[in-house]
Design a binder for these strands. Structure first.
Lengths: 148, 148
DNA sequence: CCGTATCCATTCCGATACTG
DNA sequence: CAGTATCGGAATGGATACGG
């Protein structure tokens, strides 16, 4: 029997993350959740994904603890999907992907949606990676310590 | 004819990034590239992926400008795959995924590979999202401005 | 409006054999 | 070592019909 390679027991956190999120649809669901989507129909309209796919992805995200369900706040009989703390911790991942896309995948002047700070109404500062002592580092300044 | 949904013309940078990277294999290839892998065989051993898949993913990453090929530095007849500046700009994405995995997908005390600062030999500081004026923000402090 | 169930074409991926 | 070619099974995802 052939099965898709899983990474859920890898010792690399990147691989586990990839495995836990599941697929790109799931990541876009999380993006929409950060953007305020809560209802099945909101996700569906925003993503244009088939309902069965969306249903399966939402269930998987709930199963892995990224989303949780809650009674609909408008009093209707349905559920809402809200980010858990674990899901909210994905914020830097989404921001990193967004900033990379903005800087590398749009022509100069090409319009795109933007994430703004509510207080100032201005775009966010680009993410920076810092060492424990606060020095800014890039990939060359780092090394993976393997285990085992 | 049915075709997988593409996001390469979305106005959302997250969606475009997702589309440009292509799939999870590609992201793990990039991770390995940051970790120093350059040769076909290195990627293959590290990932355990079928060679035809690896070949196709490497070609796609070169096509999108994340990787570039160079003559092998050891003088052999083969190529090396090296990150372009565009590819190196994915560093915060990898770090974000790594940190999320470390904090949410491992049992306490469970061993995992770690990214260390070369200078200090200590783990990196967790990524933080900042507004333009330097204030730290989280998802609730931000809003997406849609275009059009 | 919110999902689930089913169907089916396409795609994907792993194994393997093969070339330089 | 570094890939390419091919194949067959599995899983995906889109459309749609249906039920709560």
């Amino acid at each position: 029997m052939v099965e898709r390679t899983r990474f859920d027991d890898s010792d690399c956190p990147v691989a586990r993350s990839v495995d836990a999120i599941g697929d790109w649809w799931s990541l876009l669901i999380v993006r929409d959740a950060f953007d305020g989507s809560r209802r099945f129909g909101e996700f569906q309209r925003s993503l244009g994904v088939a309902k069965n796919i969306l249903s399966a992805r939402l269930r998987a995200l709930v199963a892995t603890g990224v989303l949780d369900t809650a009674p609909a706040s408008d009093g209707s009989a349905y559920r809402e999907y809200v980010l858990t703390p674990k899901g909210r911790a994905l914020f830097p991942v989404i921001v990193a992907l967004r900033q990379w896309g903005e800087q590398n995948l749009f022509a100069p002047g090409e319009p795109h949606s933007t994430l703004l700070d509510r207080h100032e109404g201005r775009p966010l500062r680009p993410l920076e990676v810092h060492a424990a002592d606060g020095r800014r580092v890039d990939a060359d300044d780092t090394a993976v310590r393997k285990i085992g």
